[in-house]
Design a protein around this nucleic acid. Structure first.
Length: 174
DNA sequence: GACAGATGAAGGA
DNA sequence: TCCTTCATCTGTC
């Protein structure tokens, strides 16, 4: 059986964002061109849509769009969309779940996130899991900073983008 | 089993 | 402070 998959490209203030959605939830969120982050309107608009006719994928797509619209307006949705973590390891899922609980405008360190999943010494491994995160913004790995919160650490979409997202949430970095 | 990685702590200059 | 080194933990091949 082949899962019905829907692909949507949204225009966002940070450039095009591609989402892949299955009947289980959002499977992947990809940044388009990280080169430019214009101070454009805080508006999310669908540019393109391919495949996926199932009712479940439609509803996940709507939830994702609502979440993104609210996020870029600075008022995140109370309820995040369902996420499809098929194929991920247990450790990765634990890390991502803990990460997704970090509230808008708040930050944690890799060490603190490791502690949140009961493995305070696994900060290095948590960094690895963040790097494998297929759902930036939905799983807010940009809210995880290096020790002391005075270093960014890394970000799959690029540090400039991480800095933009943090500034958008009102987080002031030294 | 070896290696790599988005860390963290400690020690020295 | 800044830099280097080492310990630690997990995933991947």
């Amino acid at each position: 059986m082949v899962a019905t998959e829907l692909e949507i490209i949204w225009r966002t203030p940070i450039g095009p964002l591609t989402g892949r959605i299955t009947t289980k939830g959002i499977r992947l969120l990809e940044f388009g061109q990280p080169a430019a982050f214009p101070a454009g309107p805080a508006e999310v608009r669908m540019l393109e849509r391919r495949g996926g006719g199932a009712a479940a994928t439609q509803s996940h797509a709507e939830a994702a769009e609502k979440f993104l619209v609210n996020y870029f307006r600075g008022e995140p949705a109370a309820e995040p969309p369902a996420l499809d973590w098929t194929g991920a390891s247990d450790f990765d899922r634990k890390v991502w779940r803990a990460c997704s609980r970090i509230g808008f405008g708040r930050t944690l360190t890799y060490g603190e996130l490791a502690g949140a999943i009961g493995k305070p010494d696994a900060a290095r491994a948590v960094g690895g899991a963040m790097g494998r995160n297929p759902l930036p913004i939905l799983v807010p790995c940009h809210r995880v900073l290096a020790r002391g919160r005075n270093r960014l650490g890394g970000f799959s979409g690029g540090l400039a983008l991480k800095r933009w997202l943090l500034a958008h949430e009102g987080i002031d970095l030294k």
